[in-house]
């Protein structure tokens, strides 16, 4: 998802018998749904996995402002412009909630920023695709934020208190994002021939990258089992992806648009007999390629973040110098 490739120790989770008393007490708290708080003892692997996951999530929110920011000055109406501006500001806010949560684990903000700017830290593959038309802003709200919600709702129950609380704040705000996106898609799909074609084109380009957001198939994800045992992860990647497809296909039908996958067919036996959609195989080569830095916009996105950091240096230093001066004056007085 927003943290698609969280490296962990890769080792199988230990059973309670294999743990020392401290670790066992920790695991028992998690099993009893008691939240872990910043200053408490935690296994080093738990801390490291969380730092990686929360910081990838935060970086995704920050980089995620770029594709949409691209359209703020070109939104078709003043209303749409104000809404998009508010939405992008929310993404900045989400990044900040998450950085704060990560910092409670003993990493500094500058370290996190440095990891992003040096390319060492990952962010979601989805933000390395370009926003070519206004319809892309609709598709991102509807699909990308829709997929994000699917992943973030269970994260509200994460075992780590600060991450869980940040997710609760994020989820409260995220629903607006998805609805404004679908609203754009509805307007376009009720519009002219050219506008409907634009909406369909956006769906065609964003559908598969949105499915990739949930991360590799469970069969290939070596890190899932331990994260689940630690209560960092609640649902498997494939389960969430299935849920997303089941929710989204009827929404596309309502718009009169076609999901770009010929293998989509209703299967009554799926989801324990409740039914669900069969769908085609995600192009995982493309996913890993984008994650490795070879997507259409990787260089552009990282370049924009580095430029923002460097161009903002005089401002950060200036404000700090001003604060120091004020503090010195207070002491002198």
């Amino acid at each position: 998802m927003y943290a698609q490739k969280v490296e962990s120790t890769g080792a199988k989770p230990k059973s309670l018998d294999e743990m020392d008393p401290q670790e066992r007490a920790f695991q028992e708290r998690i099993d009893a749904n008691i939240k872990i708080e910043p200053k408490e003892w935690m296994p080093e692997g738990y801390r490291k996995t969380l730092i990686r996951q929360i910081s990838q999530h935060a970086h995704s929110e920050i980089v995620g402002q770029l594709p949409e920011g691209n359209w703020i000055t070109r939104a078709p109406t003043l209303d749409r412009k104000a809404i998009l501006l508010a939405k992008v500001q929310d993404e900045a806010g989400h990044g900040l909630y998450l950085y704060c949560a990560a910092e409670t684990l003993g990493v500094t903000r500058d370290q996190l920023t440095e990891q992003l700017l040096s390319g060492k830290a990952k962010y979601s593959s989805i933000f390395n695709y370009p926003t070519l038309t206004w319809a892309d802003i609709g598709a991102i709200g509807w699909l990308v934020d829709g997929a994000a919600i699917m992943n973030q709702v269970p994260l509200q129950r994460c075992s780590y208190g600060p991450y869980s609380r940040a997710m609760i704040r994020v989820c409260k705000e995220e629903s607006f994002h998805q609805r404004q996106g679908y609203d754009i898609m509805m307007t376009l799909s009720k519009g002219s021939e050219a506008q409907r074609a634009m909406a369909q084109d956006a769906l065609n380009r964003w559908w598969w990258p949105s499915l990739m957001m949930f991360g590799p198939s469970d069969a290939e994800s070596v890190h899932s089992a331990q994260s689940m045992a630690w209560g960092i992860k609640q649902d498997s990647n494939d389960d969430l992806r299935q849920k997303f497809v089941d929710q989204t296909v009827p929404q596309a039908e309502y718009l009169g648009l076609k999901v770009p996958d010929d293998d989509i067919v209703w299967n009554e036996a799926k989801n324990d007999g409740k039914g669900g959609y069969d769908f085609g195989e995600v192009n995982w080569d493309e996913f890993f390629d984008v994650l490795a830095g070879n997507g259409p916009c990787n260089a552009e996105r990282l370049g924009a973040r580095v430029k923002a950091w460097e161009d903002g240096a005089w401002f950060r230093e200036g404000l700090m110098a001003h604060a120091d001066k004020q503090a010195a004056r207070k002491i002198a007085a």
Binding site: Q89, L96, C100, R165, R169, E173, L319, H322, Q326, A327
Partner: peptide, 23 residues
Amino acid sequence: VGSLHAPDAEMAINNARDVYTRR
């Protein structure tokens, strides 16, 4: 409600307004 970085108290209040009370 959370934390944030700011050079001084005044900026911290301004940033808190934007980060924690947008609605």
